[in-house]
Design a protein around this nucleic acid. Structure first.
Lengths: 347, 347
DNA sequence: GAAACCACCGAAAACGTTTTCGGAAAAATA
DNA sequence: TATTTTTCCGAAAACGTTTTCGGTGGTTTC
């Protein structure tokens, strides 16, 4: 049990705990000589301050809490990497919790984090969440909160997002400009807002280019917005609409399901049907044809959210006014094979 | 600042903090009536015990630390999900750290976790780590450690692993029994042990079946054992060996790189060359042809490791003797298209 | 009616720090 | 030499709990 405390160092040196503590923290009213004696003794005795005692006394834990709604995969693992990197750099520890898209669990976890006295909270809201009193409680408790990805506009705190509507709008506009006429959309369920926004971007792009919006071209992938969804909806799509020439999927996973099905039935991508994904996950470069998609900067989202949170923690500590930021990270189109028609060689 | 403490409840009720504390913790020397009064008042005042004070007093934090060597992706995200799930169920919080395969960072992070007084540590070692004094320091400090995936045999603690050598042996044996004669291996670098073990399993399987081991059929994927590695080594392979008929890759990622290349140059999988992966990551069902692979149960590894750790924490608390376990989780072959030759239709 | 017992409560110490405040000795000034 | 200033150190309180130990007052026992 290698557990030396201030009092042990003090005893070994024949001085008081006060002096030891001050020496370690670099107080100016300690002489050079005693300071160096303390430092050396602390080193040889392998002293590590008891974080609990320090936390209790100083009322800060150098720890932030992160709540993500879903399993650590795909998008959220990138976000997490961004958070972990920034936290490491700034000297913070991170506690991770999963709400599994459940409001009650999310609420309980916020309470838990507050009880643990984390210095701040990063959260992407669950799909069920439509009451924000637990978030406001944290904020009122002087614990800053930064929302990312799945946010609530009405909560007064910093947020880091992408513009889903614009990104979808850009994607569909791109397809139209490439000459595609009949563009289907494989959408997500009615929650969260992100899936609605992507749908709205799709619709707006069509309307702005004078293409009539046709509800029968919109397929709901509400299973899990996953691979299977794309596969089965693609099947329905080609049965319903012989002449569709492109599809914009809410997610790369869905898009890959589509590609899989079209490959199986020998429909040429993109010559017969083009496929456009969303997120730029790893698999999108692995599939054949490689998937055109929207780059969703998960790592940057996490990095930025953590950075803002830690800034706010510092501001609160200094009793400075905290200025909330709404950061909208840019997305852009990653053009790959699934929308690039092979050039016709003139005869 | 919604921050009620024991003393506030005591004041509101005109009793002592002692009584409040005991009532909340269900001590038997508090009358039913005062207990219920306290409980109700605690509820209306929205009392949450200050975890730091509790931790300091009780010397336990209900928190475990997790150190993973690489980015949260693929295998480690599954492990993480298993850990998070078990921790949630058992009432533990989890702090995540990434060592980025650096020994020095890993060492620093262990010290940090001990300083934070986590109740236990879960760690998969970095590739650089060949000195284990930091791990032993934690154990000596009465903080149980469970090693998973990348372990060190010499450290005296519980471990959760798969048998890489056997899994590889099984894979190659499977290929041989399927009739493949000239089987290449795309191996990982000389660290960690897992990659060596998979190589040894490959070699042993060949020898046991009377196939001479040919070093020129082994390619080193030491870049990152990733997609690119597989792609470029596949290119070399088909140039070097016209007659190779199967390849066993250290990782699904590498295998997918191989498939990608073979698809591009129109080599039929598996009719000309079969491909066998390792890990059963998500993409292996997405690629064409679907990849035969070894199922590496990341979720179970995390789940099990966390479970053992929390058990040991309880044992230590009760001053019971701790019994270390070495758990070897079973793997099995997931047979898919990449090794299933299309049956010849008899004329 | 004294002795023994029980049910209930609270004072106080402890966990390991940080920080305020005052005080002693040494140095500088007069 | 007497006074002021500077330098350095330590006592003690505080952070919010938990838990030991003792002490009431009331009830039971003989």
């Amino acid at each position: 049990m290698n557990d030396t405390k201030l009092i042990d160092i003090a005893a070994a040196l024949g001085i008081s705990v006060t002096t030891v503590s001050k020496a370690l923290k670099g107080y100016s009213d300690i002489s050079k000589t005693t300071r160096s004696r303390v430092l050396e003794m602390a080193d040889t005795m392998n002293y590590r301050p008891n974080a609990n005692a320090v936390n209790l006394r100083t009322n800060e834990t150098k720890t932030i809490g992160v709540i993500i709604p879903a399993t650590v995969h795909h998008f959220f693992s990138s976000v997490l990497n961004g958070i972990l990197e920034e936290a490491e750099n700034r000297g913070y520890l991170v506690i991770i919790l999963q709400s599994n898209e459940k409001y009650e669990l999310e609420k309980k976890q916020i309470a838990l984090l507050l009880q643990k006295r984390v210095d701040g909270i990063l959260i992407s809201l669950s799909n069920e969440t439509d009451d924000f009193s637990h978030i406001n409680a944290a904020i009122k408790n002087n614990t800053p909160v930064v929302l990312f990805d799945k946010i609530a506009k009405m909560v007064d705190c910093s947020k880091v997002v992408i513009n889903d509507r614009k990104a979808a709008y850009d994607a569909v506009t791109y397809l139209i400009e490439k000459g595609y006429k009949k563009i289907a959309h494989f959408r997500g369920s009615y929650v969260p807002q992100n899936s609605i926004d992507r749908f709205l971007g799709y619709k707006k792009a069509l309307e702005d280019r004078g293409i009539a919006y046709d509800p029968s071209l919109v397929y709901m992938c509400d299973h899990n917005s996953d691979f299977e969804d794309g596969y089965v909806c693609a099947k329905k799509l080609v049965e319903d609409h012989k002449d569709v020439d492109a599809v914009f999927a809410i997610t790369d996973l869905v898009a890959i399901g589509i590609i899989k099905y079209l490959n199986e039935i020998n429909i040429k991508i993109p010559d017969q049907i083009a496929v456009f994904g969303f997120s730029n996950w790893f698999m999108s470069t692995v599939i054949s044809p490689k998937l055109t998609t929207i780059d969703q900067p998960g790592y940057e989202i996490g990095h930025r959210a953590a950075s803002i949170l830690i800034d706010e923690i510092a501001q609160i500590k200094e009793h400075l006014p905290v200025t909330h930021q709404i950061v909208e990270l840019p997305t852009h189109i990653i053009e790959r094979e699934s929308t690039l028609k092979t050039v016709e060689v003139p005869a």
